[in-house]
Design a binder for these strands. Structure first.
Length: 479
DNA sequence: CGAGGAGCGA
DNA sequence: ACGTCGCTCCTCGA
């Protein structure tokens, strides 16, 4: 059998302004067995990949087994899904997203002006200092100003946003530094970064790593388009720079609270399912459980409930929740306990999940994607707790990732078979963005809605999956 | 050039 | 120790 050299199916993108090239790894084997620790991918270099070209079930499983060993073969469904997704991602990367560089340049100038003003204000209070140096800020606050440190990190005392918010109550300079930080982030990562990333064709072409996360989520890099700011002000203006192609509009479709719905689906908790079937606001429902059933729920109470809902998915502890909510550990623990009391199926689901993880050494999504978690058997309590949170989170995050990947493959297929001009251009974990002609708006709305909601259905439980769709002349408007 | 801190998103 | 998953920018020291 002929051995194929590494990256035989490499796809080369059109040249950048500076004559650089981007390269999309076209292999389907890389990483399919999941990470064993940070960045510890299974190598696929020695697989005989021509078998994958033949694309038969036996060949795929054989090729995979050459790399990962027979005991850790991924489900065939996931292997097929990842294989099918490769071409979809290549098309998305190649099309890219249109980008308004002039507008970003203008935004950048205004941000830089604001930064200079802030620098002057800060330097009137302290000079000399590098505001971007945590080390120097540490010296300023905890030695020069004699403030009591709140939080430690590996190298000393933290000066992150939580700490500075606290210091800002008594020292104005902390507030200025926070403003400076925010603007610096926008200027460096988003204005300068995106300006560098824009191609001569006036578009930005990210690169997706289909197996970028250990849970099955994708990641995006060069540039990362999955962490474009969402806020108001400059952040919103930056997002407005992402625009449709000439005469087109952007259509954004995003899953509503998909991870909590997935938790309801996986755990089969009747109370959680009822909440979604009734169409009630899930955070409001949890708030009623955590506080008094008939009491008026304030926005503050709803915020706590929302934090608890998300926290549970991450395997949060009373201590961690207390830190997030800035309340006592006792109070936070009461919230966590109340959640599990009112959604008892979630507790039994997690108990069963962790027991299975200890038995099998892995957890898996509804569709059979696996993550190996050796740490669940670790003698060290800290290591074991970390592993348990990973085990609890993966099936939820991973099933949501499976869902949107399945939808992407199906939507790509329909766009092609129905000869539509619109294109799928971006994925942000629970959101898909399409660049479409105005006259395809209704077709896309119906099609995207149908496919995205269809991917998680079963005969024994009816759980509503809700997709919100909106359109606009830029990414901020369409969101 | 890499580690660490920080901050942006889901 | 203390909530999951990522990527990129900056500083600082080898």
């Amino acid at each position: 059998m002929q051995r194929i050299e590494k990256n035989p199916f490499g796809y080369r993108h059109p040249p950048l302004t500076g004559g650089q090239f981007k390269y999309t790894d076209y292999s389907i084997i890389s990483g399919l067995s999941g990470k064993r620790g940070k960045k510890d991918w299974v190598s696929w270099a020695d697989a005989e990949l021509e078998l994958i070209l033949e694309d038969t079930p036996e060949n795929r499983v054989w090729a995979l087994s050459q790399v990962v060993g027979n005991n850790e073969i991924e489900s065939f469904y996931i292997l097929t899904l990842e294989s099918d997704l490769i071409g979809v991602l290549v098309r998305m990367e190649t099309v890219g997203v249109a980008f308004d560089r002039k507008k970003l340049e203008d935004i950048g100038q205004r941000i830089r002006t604001d930064i200079r003003k802030l620098e002057i204000e800060i330097y009137e209070l302290v000079w000399p200092i590098n505001i971007s140096s945590p080390k120097q800020l540490q010296t300023l606050f905890f030695e020069t100003l004699g403030i009591r440190p709140l939080k430690k990190n590996k190298t000393g005392y933290s000066v992150d946003v939580d700490v500075l918010e606290e210091i800002a109550k008594t020292h104005d300079i902390a507030r200025l530094i926070l403003e400076y930080r925010g603007l610096s982030k926008l200027s460096g990562t988003y204005v300068d970064g995106l300006m560098r990333a824009a191609w001569a064709d006036g578009r930005i072409h990210t690169t997706y790593d289909s197996l970028g996360a250990a849970t099955g989520r994708m990641s995006s890099n060069d540039p990362n388009l999955q962490n474009i700011p969402t806020g108001d002000g400059y952040a919103r203006e930056i997002k407005e720079c992402f625009i449709p192609s000439m005469d087109n509009i952007l259509l954004v479709a995003d899953y509503s609270q998909v991870e909590i719905r997935v938790l309801a689906f996986l755990s089969q908790d009747q109370s959680l399912i009822d909440a979604f079937q009734s169409g009630e606001d899930i955070h409001m429902r949890t708030a009623k459980f955590l506080f008094w059933e008939n009491q008026i729920i304030t926005s503050h109470m709803r915020r706590i409930a929302k934090t608890v809902n998300f926290g549970v998915i991450y395997g949060i502890t009373g201590f961690g929740l207390a830190k997030t909510l800035d309340c006592s550990v006792t109070e936070a623990q009461q919230y966590v306990d109340a959640f599990y009391t009112r959604y008892p199926g979630v507790r039994t689901y997690y108990d069963r999940l962790l027991a299975d993880a200890r038995t099998n050494g892995y957890v898996e999504t509804y569709f059979g994607r696996r993550r190996y978690i050796p740490g669940v058997g670790d003698a060290n309590k800290t290591m074991r707790s970390i592993a348990e949170r990973e085990a609890m989170n993966m099936p939820v995050q991973g099933t949501a990732a499976d869902m949107i990947k399945i939808a992407m493959v199906e939507l790509d297929r329909r766009i092609t078979s129905e000869w539509l001009q619109g294109k799928m251009i971006l994925q942000v974990h629970d959101e898909l963005v399409f660049d479409i002609p105005v006259d395809e708006k209704e077709i896309f709305e119906v099609m995207v809605w149908e496919v995205m909601e269809w991917v998680l259905h079963s005969s024994w439980v009816s759980l509503p999956i809700i997709v919100d769709i909106s359109t606009g002349d830029n990414w901020a408007e369409a969101k």
